[in-house]
């Protein structure tokens, strides 16, 4: 009887989430087995046809490869910058908060603002820094225009906006390391690196792992910056699963196929979520 009351308290959250995420999600799963074009009242079951089609499409594999390259970039570059700055901030008594604030500025701004300011003021050959450098005689290539650099150029903007977040999270975690352990290690003559390696690092390891899982999940879902900066081009050089699905759904009337891509994307999400659950199992069962 008592427990019934608590179910009611859960109800708003579950109802909302299920009606917006779960039920449409299941509908999408159904659509992915049909030839629906998003318009027609006719919906025909075609079994695994959409999956066969996307697996036979080079662009799909290109996009998947880009998602993986994106993931590798994100689990290295921002993690390194974030960790370095967090460790450096840990030693500062004054201004640490100020630096954290500044580092977070790009993180709190809208992707659309960030993307457009980079496009217009950095990359633009007319009004941007790139254009200015050329005008004074430097032969600067166009980062977004080259298929070998486009992915890195887009990732650079996204990393620029993201790394400050990691700084703050790592710093908070570093600060939770018991001071007596740090002092004990220093008393025994450990140098800065040794203190980090043997005292701080084990202490923040759960946080680092957790952030890795989050980064991987979001790397497979990444959409905003790619869509706004290149739309997946040039020549699919920055195509992601998300932009691929978006084009299929909104440009070529292949909603069934787009749904199949969405389903594949959520499979990756599911794997990551399973890993996340496994990581936080201690907390779940505490």
């Amino acid at each position: 009887m008592k427990s019934f009351r608590y179910y009611i308290l859960l109800l708003p959250a579950l109802l909302l989430s299920m009606s917006v995420v779960l039920i449409p999600g299941l509908l999408t799963a159904y659509i992915s087995f049909t030839d629906w074009n998003g318009v027609s009242p006719q919906i025909n079951w075609i079994g695994l046809g959409n999956f066969r089609a996307i697996f036979a499409d080079n662009v799909f594999w290109k996009a998947l490869g880009n998602n993986i390259r994106w993931t590798i970039l994100f689990v290295t570059v921002p993690v390194f910058i974030g960790m370095l700055s967090a460790v450096l901030l840990l030693g500062r008594r004054i201004n640490a908060t100020l630096y954290q604030l500044i580092y977070l500025f790009p993180y709190v701004l809208a992707p659309i603002t960030n993307a457009l300011l980079w496009l217009n003021i950095i990359f633009n050959p007319l009004t941007g820094v790139i254009g200015f450098l050329r005008k004074i005689g430097l032969n600067v290539p166009a980062p977004l225009g080259n298929i070998n650099t486009a992915l890195y150029a887009v990732a650079a903007v996204d990393i620029w906006h993201y790394w400050g977040f990691l700084t703050v999270v790592y710093l908070a975690s570093l600060r939770q390391t018991p001071m007596d352990q740090v002092e004990a290690a220093q008393a025994e003559g450990a140098n800065g690196w040794q203190v980090f390696r043997y005292v701080y690092f084990p202490s923040i390891l759960p946080t680092v792992l957790l952030m890795y899982v989050m980064i991987i999940i979001f790397s497979f879902l990444t959409f905003d910056y790619v869509y706004l900066l290149t739309g997946g081009g040039p020549a699919h050089a920055t195509e992601m699963l998300s932009t691929y699905a978006y084009t299929l759904g909104f440009s070529t009337f292949q909603v069934g196929r787009a749904s199949a891509v969405g389903l594949v994307m959520s499979m990756f999400g599911l794997i990551a979520a399973a890993f996340y659950t496994w990581l936080s199992r201690r907390e779940i069962t505490e």
Binding site: A235, S251, T252, Q254
Partner: peptide, 19 residues
Amino acid sequence: PPATQQEFINIDTVWLGTE
């Protein structure tokens, strides 16, 4: 038709030598 058109929008794959 739309999907064929999309393939020609993606002609930059040939321009950039990826196919």
